[in-house]
Simulated assay, not measured.
Amino acid sequence: MSTVAAGGKSIYGAPLGILMLETRFARIPGDMGNAGTWPFPVLFRVVKGADPKRVVLNQAAGLLPNFIEAAQELVHLGAEAITTNCGFLSLFQKELAEAVGVPVATSSLIQVPWVQATLPPGKRVGVVTVSGKSLTPRHLEAAGAPVDTPFIGTEDGREFFRVLIMGEKDDLDVSLAEQDILDAGRRLLRAHPEIGALVLECTNMPPYAKALQAALGVPVYDIYSLITWWHAGLRPRGFA
């Protein structure tokens, strides 16, 4: 009996498409934009005009058509689900899902209500973001997160914000970047001792999640935890 292989795509075996910002900074292992981060194949597409300043500091103004076009290109290639390279793109969650007709997860912030459901009474989720001054109730609401979620940014750090958002250089001092994340997390927990878990908004933060969890003693979730969970639904494990 013959076997028929289904066609209709350009690329097979990579069901997840990632919309990338236009950047030049180093993407170390664990960063969403480092292909080696993922334990499965992914498809990347850089969105024209989507630099970090415009997306984060200016709420991605005027960029929705660019993201829709790039997402549609990924779906045409073979992507069965679409995610993005910046948590601030939660603003485009509804529009992107409507435009591409496949599952879309624009932001790590989508996990906030899920994580909240796991916490004991009296505990809540906190968020570490690359830019606390730029994260608004609109971003949280679009991700399904409570608008009063406590959060903190990394603007006062020495490396992370300066390199990733301001683009002051291409190279990244990983030790300094990690210290910026740790400092922000500690400040957030001092201000909100009721926090029982953290969600990292920025897709460049997963390399530092382990150190943050060890330092603070609370669960830490990020874009890696979201996407690996999501992929498990796209390609469920088979059991004998």
Results as ranks from 00 to 15, higher is better:
156 D>P: 05
192 H>W: 10
164 L>G: 02
231 H>F: 12
206 P>D: 14
153 G>D: 03
192 H>L: 04
155 E>R: 10
173 D>P: 01
216 L>V: 01
165 I>K: 01
123 K>S: 15
178 E>V: 03
193 P>E: 11
215 A>Q: 08
213 Q>F: 08
217 G>R: 00
141 E>Y: 08
128 V>E: 04
198 L>W: 04
152 I>R: 08
171 D>H: 10
225 S>H: 15
224 Y>A: 12
186 R>Y: 00
224 Y>P: 00
133 K>N: 14
218 V>F: 06
181 I>Q: 07
164 L>T: 13
159 E>H: 04
182 L>S: 00
163 V>W: 02
196 G>W: 04
207 P>V: 11
136 T>W: 06
204 N>T: 06
135 L>W: 07
146 P>W: 01
170 D>R: 03
214 A>M: 10
141 E>T: 10
183 D>L: 12
192 H>S: 08
136 T>A: 09
177 A>L: 02
177 A>M: 00
136 T>R: 11
146 P>K: 00
155 E>H: 05
161 F>W: 07
124 R>K: 15
172 L>S: 09
232 A>L: 05
167 G>K: 07
214 A>T: 11
190 R>M: 10
127 V>N: 03
160 F>V: 05
213 Q>L: 11
185 G>V: 01
221 Y>P: 12
123 K>P: 09
167 G>W: 06
205 M>I: 06
208 Y>E: 14
154 T>C: 15
211 A>S: 10
164 L>C: 09
161 F>C: 08
213 Q>T: 10
154 T>K: 02
203 T>E: 08
229 W>K: 11
175 S>P: 05
177 A>H: 02
165 I>E: 01
142 A>Q: 08
161 F>R: 03
154 T>H: 06
196 G>C: 10
127 V>W: 07
211 A>G: 08
154 T>P: 03
208 Y>H: 15
166 M>E: 14
202 C>E: 02
152 I>M: 03
134 S>A: 15
232 A>C: 11
133 K>D: 13
207 P>W: 01
163 V>K: 06
205 M>P: 12
184 A>Y: 04
231 H>V: 01
131 S>N: 15
150 P>K: 10
201 E>R: 13
166 M>P: 03
